[in-house]
Computed example of a mutant assay.
Amino acid sequence: MDKRMGGKRNYLAMKTDYSEANEVISSDLREVGHAMKKLANHAIKLGAGLGFGTSFLKWVASFAAIYLLILDRTNWKTNILTSLLIPYIFLSLPSWLFNLFRGEFGKWVALIAVVLRLFFPRHFPDWLELPAALILLIVVAPSFFAVTIRGNLVGVFICLAIGCYLLQEHIRASGGFRNSFTKSKGISNSIGILLLFLYPVWALVIHFL
């Protein structure tokens, strides 16, 4: 009788321990599930934030390059090779704006520019040459450049190389690093050139994170 009672107590104790173990495991699994959901939500938010940051910096870099082109056509003109800004804008221009110029709208703009340049050269001002060259480049560029190069690290490194070259040329033309950031004529160009680094540096950081 005592053996039966002892066996029953052992069975009940084992059953209780088994139930408690199941509850602990279930609780742990629920906590893991909640943690995974939080991790997924944070990853989605981070990815969206990083994507927005890249798009925003593309806008900043493109406008900085356009700003430098405008400066080059005014009395702030420098001796730096500003034609390099054309491939920079080509590679950093935000996608929807790039696709707009690559479509029918860009073709019409390119056609008008070519007609004016060929048949009405007097009505085609010098300051329009580089913008027209940019539109033509966007319209006629093969997919290898317009899609493949623009969409990978090669394009980012080209933008970074252009920024480095323009910065060192600007410092040399200004008579030194100090003059490029102290003279009134040099500050505006220095700020514009430094803004060119935002997009490629950010893109590299995101890629290697």
Rank of each mutant, 00 (worst) to 15 (best):
L166N: 09
I66R: 07
G47V: 00
A21E: 15
K107T: 10
I162R: 04
K107D: 04
G186K: 01
K8S: 02
K107V: 10
R102W: 03
I187A: 02
I193C: 05
M36E: 14
F90A: 10
K107G: 10
M36H: 07
G51D: 07
S26Q: 09
A35R: 15
G106Q: 03
F177R: 11
G47I: 00
I66V: 11
G53W: 06
I89L: 09
L100H: 02
A48K: 12
L46W: 12
S19E: 14
L128V: 07
H123L: 11
L194G: 02
F120V: 11
G103V: 03
L160D: 15
Y88L: 13
I86W: 02
A64T: 05
L134V: 08
A35K: 14
V154R: 09
Y88S: 12
S188E: 01
G155I: 01
I187Y: 07
H34I: 04
F181I: 14
R122Q: 12
E129S: 14
N75G: 09
I135M: 00
P125I: 06
F63T: 06
S174W: 04
R117L: 10
K8D: 03
N79W: 00
G176P: 05
W59Y: 15
Y199E: 11
L97P: 04
L111V: 05
S190C: 02
G6R: 15
L100A: 14
L100Y: 06
L196C: 05
L153N: 13
V114F: 10
G49Q: 07
K58L: 07
G186N: 03
L137G: 15
A110Q: 12
S180Q: 03
S95Y: 01
L68G: 03
M1I: 01
I187Q: 07
W127A: 04
